[in-house]
Design a protein around this nucleic acid. Sequence first.
DNA 1: TGTCTCGGAATGAACGTTCATTCCGTTTTG
DNA 2: CAAAACGGAATGAACGTTCATTCCGAGACA
Lengths: 202, 202
Amino acid sequence: MEQVVKKIDKKTLILDTTLELLSENGFHGTPISLIAENAGIGAGTIYRYFKNKEELINVLFIEIQRRIIKAMYCNYNEAAPYQERFKVLWINMINYYRKHPKDLIFIEQHRYAPYVSTLTRSESMRIISPVLLFFLEGKKKRFIKHLPLYTIIGLIYGPIVTIVKLNLDHNRVTTDDQIFHAEQACWDAVKYNDTKLEENIK
Amino acid sequence: MEQVVKKIDKKTLILDTTLELLSENGFHGTPISLIAENAGIGAGTIYRYFKNKEELINVLFIEIQRRIIKAMYCNYNEAAPYQERFKVLWINMINYYRKHPKDLIFIEQHRYAPYVSTLTRSESMRIISPVLLFFLEGKKKRFIKHLPLYTIIGLIYGPIVTIVKLNLDHNRVTTDDQIFHAEQACWDAVKYNDTKLEENIK
DNA sequence: TGTCTCGGAATGAACGTTCATTCCGTTTTG
DNA sequence: CAAAACGGAATGAACGTTCATTCCGAGACA
C-alpha cells in the first residue's frame, strides 16, 4: 500500500520539477540530469516512471490539459443561461492561466512541438471535448454563430493566451478590468447576430 | 558587386533550408549538419553568415515577421474606410499563412521559445508597429473598442493562427468561406459598440 | 524480539551518440 | 597571386539512456 503512495508521489515530484524547469528553459535547455538534480533524485529513477524524455513531456502535457479543464468547470452551473455559462468557462480558464503562468508557457511552447505525439494530440482533444460540446450546443441553439469549431476556438482561446502572455512578457499584472472587457469582446465575436437586426440598426 | 549578390543568395539559401527543416522537425530535430547537407553546402559555411545556431533562428524569425507585414500591406489603401482597411489587413495576413504554412509553424513554434532573444522580441515589436498604430487609430477614432493593445491583438491574431493551424493538423483546406465569416467575427469582437445602442435593441 | 533473506526501488557513473563549433587545406574570386 | 570563401573532417562538450550495484523495508524464521 505504502509503496503505491510513494510511487505516485515521486511521479508527481518529477512532473512538477519538469514543468518548473521546462517553462523556464525549454526542452533542450533542461537535461534529464537537471530535472533529477532539482527533484533530489537520481537520473535513472526518472526512467522507472517514464520510458524516455519524450514520454515525460507528453504525460505532463496531458496532465496540465486535465487541470485546466477541471478548473474551467469549477462553479459551472449546467442550468444557467448559455451566455452565463460561457462567461464562467472563459473567466475560469483565463484565471487558471493567471494563477499558473508556467502551465501557460509550457502548453503554448509544446502545442506545436514535433515531439508531442499524435496520440497525445487526440487524447488532448478527448479531454477538451466537453468544451467542444458546449460550443456545438451553442451553435445548434443559435446562441452563437454558425462557425467551424476551430474558428470558434480561435476566437475564444486566442485572446486568453495572448493577453496573459503579453502581460507576463512585459511584467505587467493582468487586471480584472482587462479580463472583464476581454470576455465581453470574445462574446461579441461569437454571439449570434441576426443579420436583419443589424440592418435595422443602420 | 557579385560578391554581395552571392553572399545574399547563400544567406537566403541557408535561411530557406532552415525554415523548411525547422518547421518539420523543430529546433533540436534539425542539426546544423542537416541544414548544411540540404542546402548543399559545408557546415562551416553557415558560420560565415551566422554567429551560431541561435542567431540563425533569430534572424529567420525577424525575416519572416517582415515578410508577413509586407504581405499585409499589399493593396492596402490608406484612404479607405477603417473597417475596409481592417478587412484587407486581416485577410492578407491569413492568406499569407495559408500560402506559407511553414512560416506559421515556425513562428508559432518559436514565439515563446527561450532562445528567441529579447532583442529579437523588441525588433519584432518594431516591425509590427504599423499594425499597432492602426489599432491605436481605431481606438482613438472610436472605430474599435477601447481595449488594451494586447487584448486587441489576441482577439484578432489568435483566430488566424488557430484556424489555419487546426486545418493543417487535420489535413483540411481552409476555405474562403471560413475566412469570410471569421473575419466578420473578428470585426464583431473589436468593433466599437455604443452600449446605449445595444440597450435600445432589446 | 532480533536476525536473516529477499525483491524491487533507487542510484549515478559510464557509455555511446549527437551536435554545435572550429580549424585548416582547397577552391574561387578579382 | 593575394585574399576571401568554402567544405567538411576533427573536436570536445553535452546529453539521453543504461545497468551493475546499493539501499531499504517487509516478511520469514527461530
